[in-house]
Each structure stands twice: as C-alpha cells, then as structure tokens.
Design a protein around this nucleic acid. Structure first.
Length: 419
RNA sequence: GUGGCCGUAGCUCAAUGGUAGAGCUCCAGAUUGUGGUUCUGGCUGUUGCGGGUUCGAGUCCCGUCGGUCACCCCA
C-alpha cells in the first residue's frame, strides 16, 4: 500500500524537521504577542462556497463529500473563513486588536509539484480590529522575523510590497468602471506570465492596455507607503522590503496592503503571502461583525525546500535537531547482577526529567556504548561493580568520573552546564 | 484537467536485448567493563504493476499506478 498522492508520511527524521519549523513559528509568533487558536479540520462546504461565489475553481480543489448525515462537508483548504467565523462570533469578548495565529493542516485537491502538496501545514497570522500603517507594519515585521528565525537574511529573501488601494485609485482615476477592476487586477497578476496580446484582449473592455499597467507599476513607490516604511525602518527591517506594484495577489477580498515573500533567486513559489482585508469579516458574518483585518499565510512545504537549498539555514536546522537528541543519558548495565540497580538508576534519571534509556535485552558493554552513541546521548552512566557508586562518562570528551549514584542527577546537571 | 522526464535492495545508483550488481545503512563477529575510525562475515529484490514483441526483456512497445517538473490555479 502506498500513501495517497500528495500526502506525506512523517518518520522520526521528517517529523523532527516538521516540528523544528512548527516550534520556530510558534515561538516567533508568541514573541509578537500573538496567541494560538485552532478550528475544526472538517467544515461545511457552505463556508467556502459563500466566500467564493464567483470562483468555481476553488470548489473544484476542495476535498468535499457528504457525511453520514447527508451534510455537504469539506476538509479545510484555508483558515481565513474559519477565523472570520470565530472572530465574528466572539469578537466582543476580546480587546482589540486581536492578534491570533495558528499552524494547521490543510487540504487541496490539486496536482502536486514543487512546493505544493495535497496536505500541507500553514501558519496563519492575523491582526484584527486595527487599521493603519502601524498594524500593517506589525504584521509585516512578524512575517519578516518568521523567515529570519530560520537563519535567512536580507540577501536570501525579500518582501514585495504592494497596495490594492493604490491600484483601485489608479483605476478610478483612469475612469475604469468598478465592474472591471477584478479583470484588470487578474491581468496585472499575470503580466509576466501571459503574452501581451492575450492580456490586451482582456484589458480592452476596461479601456486599458498592458503598457498602461506597466507604466503604473513602473511609477514606483507612491507616497502612501511612506508611513509603513518608516515603521519598518525604525525596527531595522526596511532592508527586507521592496515596493513592487506588480504584486496583486489572486484573491478578490484584499482592500489595502498586499505582499508576498520570495527567495531572492525567485527560484520557488512564494514563501508567504497576505494582505489587508477590511471587508471580509463583515461579508462572511453577514454584517454581524465589522472588523478590519490584516494577515498572511506561510506554508511548510516551500519553507522546507528553502531551508534545504540554503546551506546556512540547513546547518542551523541540523544543529537544532542534534541538540534535541532522543536520549540525554544512556545507562549501561555492565554487570547483569546489577540490573535492578540499573533500572533504579534509569527510573531516578527519568523522574528527574532526563531523557534516559538503556538496553532492554542486555548486551556487551561495547554494544551499549555504541547504542549510547547512536542515540546521541551526552552521557553514559555505567552501573556495575562500583555500586553504590557509578561511573559517568561524558561521551564527547571521553572523560570519566566516579560518583555516588545518589548524587548522579546533580552531577549531570552541572556536567551538562559545563559542556 | 494538459504535457515532458523518471520508477532496479531500506537509501544512492550500476547492469550492449543474453546468469540482477556496487557503495552506504542494517545485523553478527575481531582474547567476555568502554563508543565514533578500521577489518571480516551476513541479510535484503515479484527490476512499481499488467499486457505485448522476442529463442531470450531491468533494457523495446502499449496500458496503468506512483514520483518529479512545468502549464492551469494559487485560498
């Protein structure tokens, strides 16, 4: 039996890499005062149909089925609708701004390729109930720090920053009817991928040409970005950001700042993307709650690729994984008649919080040392003829001392600190 | 949904249409209380699966499943 296409097994080595990413995400988000939430994996299809009345494509990429009660349900393909529902229902319980993050599993039925699977993990960070450049900057800074935390610098990645509102102002100034905004933005999103002829055909009803769009994009950085850039400059993070009006994002619901995080070589798809969506919560809650919001998502698959392809980040991860070896202390029972004392020692170490292990079947001393080495233990404790004393060997230095078993835990504590 | 490339041992890969191999890993040993190196030995295959061509197919052809990359889309 093979696993389903686009779905991954996580044997311990892979699980450790996944947890490294999740743990890093969590610790950085919490540094920014974001608190963790989660929602159900299975949702009503209606939740997604509502938001995407125009986009049938999204419904096709839904893992959907009827449950035994005849309800149309779907595995969640994204977090935002769930988040909007949760916030709309409870927003009066929380002081604003609401700063929430989650890292959850999502499902999309689509053909897999580099950086894209059918089941993936995505970090979602959203700041709700606050508008303005300060809130935008806070979210952007979090996005930047989330990538920096893996060892990447400004030479490795860049945040491309744009603004839906700048686009709308431009279109309004050109007299483009509102009904055509969506078409124009979609064309702008594809300006580098699609042929000018094809794009011009799409733009004609709006009275625009590819050259018009290019001229707007080339007009550079509107003054509206200045307060946001100043906020980032004060944090020392402006070097990670470039204004790039060609960033549009496919989603219709963005109302302000939008951004995508790319590796500098731009050899892979976006590491993260998001923006301001001030009307979505009101729309999804039928007006029950009217809250502005700014947020983004970051997937584990592209990030893991990026780490793997960047030596310094890969080394950083390897070091973090090595520091979290399966076992701290391996107890070697050198004399089978001392097995009871060995077990007592193992238990005492485990009670004291050490990751301790030993040979269940018993083995030659040399084998037990090999096992200790293989499990990444820092210390080997030899239980044998010296009882009630034991020998403690620091494996990295090969130094060995003999201490009373009763003082073992204390000795290890100071011994670990001196490593 | 469309297309290119690829499927051989647990892993990385060899093998002109002619007896399926190597390295690594793993397991066991090298005067029975001391590990990483070294040496010796050993295990492991429905060559993804199903058909076809051929005296003979890992190799050629068709199908299928899976992987990968691109398109589509990107929440």
């Amino acid at each position: 039996m093979q696993n389903l296409p686009g779905f991954r097994d996580f044997p311990p080595e892979d699980c450790a890499r996944r947890n490294y990413i999740l743990n890093t995400w969590r610790s950085v988000a919490r540094r920014y005062g974001f608190v963790e939430y989660d929602g159900p994996t299975l949702e009503s299809v209606e939740l997604y149909a509502k938001k995407n009345e125009s986009g049938a494509e999204i419904m096709q990429q839904l893992y959907s089925f009827e449950d035994r009660g005849g309800r149309p349900v779907a595995l969640r393909p994204e977090m935002t609708p769930t988040l909007a529902r949760m916030v709309a229902a409870r927003e009066k319980q929380y002081k604003k701004p609401i700063k929430w993050f989650s890292s959850s599993t999502f499902f999309r039925y689509e053909r897999q390729q580099k950086g894209r699977l059918r089941e993936f993990i995505q970090l979602n960070c959203d700041l709700i109930g606050e508008t303005g450049p300060a809130a935008d900057a806070e979210v952007l800074a979090l996005g930047i720090d989330l990538v920096r935390a893996f060892g990447f610098g400004p030479e490795d990645f860049v945040v491309r920053l744009s603004d839906r509102k700048a686009w709308m102002d431009f279109l309004a100034a050109r007299g483009v009817p509102k009904a055509h905004f969506g078409t124009v933005l979609q064309a702008a999103d594809k300006i580098e991928r699609e042929s000018p002829d094809s794009l011009n055909a799409k733009l004609a009803p709006a009275g625009l040409t590819v050259d018009d769009l290019k001229a707007f994009i080339a007009s550079g950085s509107p003054d509206s970005f200045r307060p946001l850039i100043e906020e980032l400059t004060a944090r020392g993070l402006a070097g990670y950001v470039e204004v790039d009006l060609s960033i549009v994002r496919g989603l219709a619901y963005y109302t302000g700042v939008v951004f995508e995080v790319f590796d500098r070589s731009k050899s892979m798809r976006a590491l993260a993307g998001g923006g301001r969506y001030d009307d979505l919560i009101a729309g999804l809650s039928d007006g029950a709650a009217n809250l502005s919001a700014m947020g983004f998502g970051m997937g584990d698959v592209v990030l893991a690729n990026f780490i793997g392809e960047t030596p310094k980040a890969a080394e950083r991860m390897a070091a973090a994984l090595a520091a979290d070896a399966p076992v701290d202390v391996y107890v070697i029972i050198a004399d089978a008649t001392r097995r009871a004392e060995g077990l007592q020692t193992v238990q005492a170490l485990r009670d004291a919080g050490w990751k301790a292990d030993f040979s269940l079947a018993g083995a030659k001393v040399g084998k037990q040392f090999q096992a200790a080495e293989g499990l990444g233990a820092k210390f080997a404790v030899v239980v044998g003829g010296e009882w009630p004393e034991v020998k403690v060997k620091t494996l990295a230095t090969r130094q060995e001392v003999q201490v009373p078993q009763s003082g073992l835990a204390d000795w290890l504590k100071s011994g670990e600190n001196s490593l």
